[in-house]
Write a protein that binds this DNA or RNA. Structure first.
Lengths: 199, 199
DNA sequence: TCGTCTCACCTAACACGGTTAGGAAGCTTG
DNA sequence: CAAGCTTCCTAACCGTGTTAGGTGAGACGA
């Protein structure tokens, strides 16, 4: 009872500190790049010294892992919100799904690298951090199935197509739209290939 | 005269040392990952101490840069060799080009990361290292043009498609063929979209 | 042939990264 | 009020890339 409310207070304090650290970590990652993230810098922004972060995270990788989970959770949240407005027409729906993905991936390099690219050496997300990511992929599968795309290989081809556009965009024209503007053509190309009827 | 032969000897000695260092660097990169490459480890393999490497390379990035150039030069060389055997049929030729690219990209993770992914923080190839890469891209453009693909956007779409297959393959099924085996379907999909006639 | 010079190598050391050890202060709990 | 847990601190370690400065072997001119 009293112990419960107390420990809940402490928990709140703890999670507040964690989110504060993570917010600072995101800021540093955006400013200095994901690999330029430094425990000393993060700590300084929350008024601590680097070793104190170990009271809240087991390691730097644990911070990356939490950020990874946050990013995919945010993706999931926005995708949920966007789901309501999905067009009825199959191609239009597919286009909207692709557009949403590209917009999210292109909006923030550090986030994109963390979510999709193996930029950080030896970093692999834990199951817990990975959970929202697999949920998102499951949701994509469900959407595609509703559009008539059921084969695993068809899904893989779609993800490859999106990944390619995003990666080329970041690699060769960051901030521009040289590849993202190919989205409509790419989606039509794919829709034709997997037999989604034209409008 | 004598001075010339002498300096040529020294040059030979210098380039020999450079290639020896680069060979060791490749070995380390393949064993410990590209980011796990350490000057001390590289130096140890050529019987030196780390600071001595600075007699041959200005920095670790310079080593990465030289490796980058080597990798793309090797790509160019193999592509040259494969060019003779390109099929006459447009789709078959396109398929062969794609197959070659995927095979090369999937054969060596460290090399792929160095060539295509921004794995190493703050590393950007110099013009000299970049030269073979732009030559390869130019050759791809020429090939595609010969197949009737002339639009810049069509070329970009092709590179995105290949990049997507490679990246998904490395990210989600390293060593397997879950995405590389989609190559034929991807090429047909693309060929249909850009109007390369079916056989 | 002999001094001199160059240059590839060495050791020592610095700055900066993640991480650990161990201690001090404050809040919760009895 | 005493005890304990938690959170922060400082000091330090180890491994990075990199720089400073020295040493010795071979090349060159006298």
């Amino acid at each position: 009872m009293l112990g419960e409310t107390t420990s809940s207070w402490q928990d709140k304090r703890r999670t507040a500190a964690r989110t504060e650290i993570l917010t600072a970590a995101w800021a540093v990652a955006r400013e200095h790049g994901l690999a330029g993230l430094t425990l000393r810098e993060v700590a300084a922004r929350v008024g601590m010294r680097a070793p104190s972060l170990y009271s809240h995270f087991a390691s730097k990788h644990a911070i990356y892992d939490a950020m990874f989970g946050q990013a995919w959770t945010e993706y999931e949240r926005l995708a949920d919100a966007a789901e309501a407005g999905l067009p009825a027409a199959p191609r239009a729906a597919l286009r909207e799904i692709a557009r949403f993905h590209l917009a999210f991936a292109v909006a923030d390099l550090a986030r994109h690298q963390l979510m999709n690219v193996r930029t950080v050496p030896d970093f692999a997300p834990t199951e817990e951090g990975l959970a929202p990511a697999v949920r998102v992929l499951g949701r994509l599968r469900a959407h595609l199935a509703r559009l008539g795309v059921t084969g695993d290989e068809d899904v893989d081809l779609f993800t490859a197509l999106l990944a390619g556009l995003v990666d080329q965009q970041w690699a060769n024209d960051p901030g521009g739209d040289r590849w993202t503007r190919l989205l409509d053509r790419a989606v039509d190309m794919y829709a034709d290939a997997v037999g989604i009827p034209r409008p």
